[in-house]
Amino acid sequence: MYFFTGFPGFIALMLLSELIGKWAPEKIYTLVLPHMKDKAIAEKERICSFTHFPHEKWEVIEGDITKPNLSLSREQLHMLASSVTHVFHLAAIYDLAVPENIARTVNVEGTKRVNEWVSSLPHLQRYIYFSTAYVSGTRQGMIFEHELDKGQAFKNHYEETKFLAEVAVQEIARNVPTTIIRPGIVVGHSKTGETIKFDGLYFMFNMFERLKFLPIIPYLGKGEAQGNFVPVDYIIDATLYLAHADEASGETYHLTDPNPYHMRDIYRMMMTEYLGKEPKGTLPLRLAKWAMSFSFVRQWLRVEKEALEYFECASIYDATNARNTLIKAGIVCPDFRDVIPVMARYYRKHRNDETKQLVIR
């Protein structure tokens, strides 16, 4: 019996679709906020229709991870305790520009509430927690999967609160069978390009679209940092395998690009693919950040200022544990050079869909 938070978010949607297709779950429970219930039911119906999964085997439950007992009734808690074997905790605020109070409430306090509930489940076989590789914060150099607290600072409230949440998960992992997933920056499907939001690396496409009238577009900074961008289908395949592999219990995995390109190369490949031309010259990153400090610039370009930090994030993410485990199932991360054209095609087709654009403040 499978229990998910974070539905109907993109990764949860993809996980559930693949779970149904490959693992034939006996029962699925998805916890959703009351105002998201209609959307969640619509997504459930859509997935059940194309997978032919019986509707009665999937229950959408109203709740709130920031409230005691997840806002579940005594009857619901008893029902779940008697059946749940796998818990996937994905609910979080992923926005790089999220205010601190909101990030702490959802990412930290919400995860602690889920931890408390998970620790009470008598039949639990695995707790799968979605963290991020960027719990490393401002650390530089090689970062290993077994590392967490090295006294690091953080580039934004998202990173800091995900770090604090993972600290809390690590504490209960001594007594609860836990697998921690640390993805890099997730992009769309490597074959279809499908994504739910044009954030993260898609901000570059937004910027290219706005600036395409210019005869010359410069590089942003030196771009010496490695870019860790991974397609969502790799994340899904890897996560579902690790959620069921005995050897993954008690482990932490970097689902990052094992052969990352430098940001300068990624920037050039994206511009060449989307605009058919290469960057010329270099705009110092400090000047780009200064320009992005003005809201009207951010809003016109459709780029969050915080995204620029990753052009100089000199971190290298070792993924030996993930690679050695996943290779047994033939699961490998695609070469990002091959993913960029697929991303560009999908973005070009859907760039005017306002539901896929973040509200930039």
Rank of each mutant, 00 (worst) to 15 (best):
M1K: 04
G6D: 13
G9T: 08
M14P: 12
L16Y: 02
G21T: 06
K27N: 06
T30V: 15
V32Y: 07
K37W: 08
I41L: 08
R46A: 03
S49I: 04
F50N: 02
H52A: 15
F53K: 09
H55C: 09
E56V: 12
E62W: 00
I65E: 00
P68G: 00
L70G: 02
S71C: 02
D95L: 01
L96G: 09
A97Q: 09
V98T: 08
A103C: 01
N107G: 10
N107P: 15
E109M: 14
T111D: 04
R113T: 13
N115P: 05
S119P: 12
S120M: 10
I128S: 03
I128T: 13
Y129L: 01
T132E: 01
A133P: 14
V135M: 00
M142D: 14
H146I: 08
D149K: 10
Q152K: 04
A153L: 14
Y158K: 15
E160T: 03
A165W: 14
A165S: 13
E166F: 11
V169I: 09
E171A: 02
R174I: 10
R174S: 07
N175W: 02
V176Y: 03
I180C: 09
I180G: 10
I181F: 09
I185S: 07
V187H: 00
V187G: 00
G188P: 01
G188I: 00
H189T: 01
E194W: 14
D199K: 13
L201W: 02
F203G: 05
M204L: 13
E209W: 08
R210A: 03
R210I: 01
K212V: 03
L214Y: 04
L214T: 04
L214H: 02
P215I: 01
P215D: 08
I216T: 08
I216A: 11
K222N: 13
G223A: 04
L240V: 07
A243R: 11
A245Y: 12
A245S: 11
A248M: 04
A248V: 08
S249K: 15
G250L: 13
G250S: 13
T252P: 02
L255D: 08
P260G: 04
P260W: 12
P260E: 06
Y267T: 04
Y267K: 02
M270R: 13
E273A: 09
E273M: 03
G276M: 05
K280C: 06
K280V: 12
T282V: 05
R286H: 14
R286M: 14
F294L: 08
S295R: 15
F296C: 06
L301Q: 14
R302I: 05
E309G: 15
A314Y: 15
I316L: 10
I316K: 07
D318V: 07
A319C: 14
T320P: 00
N321W: 14
A322L: 11
R323Q: 11
N324W: 08
K328C: 09
K328N: 06
G330K: 06
I331A: 01
R337I: 01
D338I: 00
D338F: 04
I340S: 11
I340E: 07
A344T: 03
R345T: 05
K349H: 15
H350I: 02
E354V: 12
E354W: 13
T355P: 11
L358P: 02
V359F: 06
R361V: 12
R361Y: 11
